[in-house]
Write a protein that binds this DNA or RNA. Sequence first.
DNA 1: CCTACCGATCGGTAGG
DNA 2: CCTACCGATCGGTAGG
Lengths: 194, 194
Amino acid sequence: MTPSDTVDLRERILREATRLFVARGYHGLSMREIAEAVGVSKAGLYYHFKDKEDLFLAILTDNLERMEREIQTDGQAGTTRARVRALTEAIFRQAPEQRAIIRLASQEMGHLSQAARIRFNEVYHQKFIGRVQAILAEGIASGELRPMDPSQATWILLGMMYPFFYPAHSSELGPPEDAIDLMLAIFFDGAGQT
Amino acid sequence: MTPSDTVDLRERILREATRLFVARGYHGLSMREIAEAVGVSKAGLYYHFKDKEDLFLAILTDNLERMEREIQTDGQAGTTRARVRALTEAIFRQAPEQRAIIRLASQEMGHLSQAARIRFNEVYHQKFIGRVQAILAEGIASGELRPMDPSQATWILLGMMYPFFYPAHSSELGPPEDAIDLMLAIFFDGAGQT
DNA sequence: CCTACCGATCGGTAGG
DNA sequence: CCTACCGATCGGTAGG
């Protein structure tokens, strides 16, 4: 009944729904199931969020803001390699269902209404993609990285992490800590024997 | 009326449904919409496929078999680098909705029944993942690639391609031909300036 | 009896 | 925030 209870409920909805949307996708999850998981009526969800898309966008935005805070405390200075390592470690330091938001955003982007898609794409680039691309662009400018298209390089770097954002592969890939070193070694030095 | 008409209809269902499932995901597409796209009744779909999951599995298997044929004509011999290049080019030579099957499989694996998931995972590894992993494992054994876990290396290589399998990014990533050279350069030599 | 479907409708559930 | 519902659509199946 108190305002803090309301805040808590909204947070609980976001936390439960994040977990469920990551596991099931946008269309694989119903509002009824979210309500049951939270222990609230469906109407309760619609009190806090206009519709399903509004709840979904709140989840993406909420988790991207958390991600933004994590990646900006790390890797502000140092070599490009150190900054990319700090970024990667920050991403994998997040709970699995929070880092999987990157994959979920790519995956469900096309299922949003055009207006929501345009708005979210702006936030997505401002809070996350742009930060990654800026680090790589500076590395190219300083000569630490080879000349290449920063946008393509960004998606190749993030792409390397994608399989670790799928629940289906998490099991057969082993602990991500081991994979981080390999991803960075390949991204900077290549998999070829020198 | 003739047998060839039946074959054609089944093929037409698979082709249309492939395109639609790639664009919308498993739960984002109804049997009614598939039927309308093909120009057949829903009952017609159920004559050829037991249920929605059966149709979806047929699509994954069908396209993976096509992929298997494409990647085995290429890259049978030569250096590891040449074989990986042939593999990558074969993947990107496929129509966008056919290569996106790799991403769709990872994405929807968890939405299948347990029995279907186990069966499909076997086919998936036999027809595709195993072929990629074998090339990398041989490269590691011959010393062309650095010592590393072949399974992790496989997912890192395939992961680099993942963003190109999402309709949402295809537009901002430019023509894949340009990206293939960069992916291979990074995977073998690294993005670092030497 | 068959193969290859169709028009209509089933019991449940979707978002709102 | 809930109970009680709606128009529509869901995956799947009946008889012919």
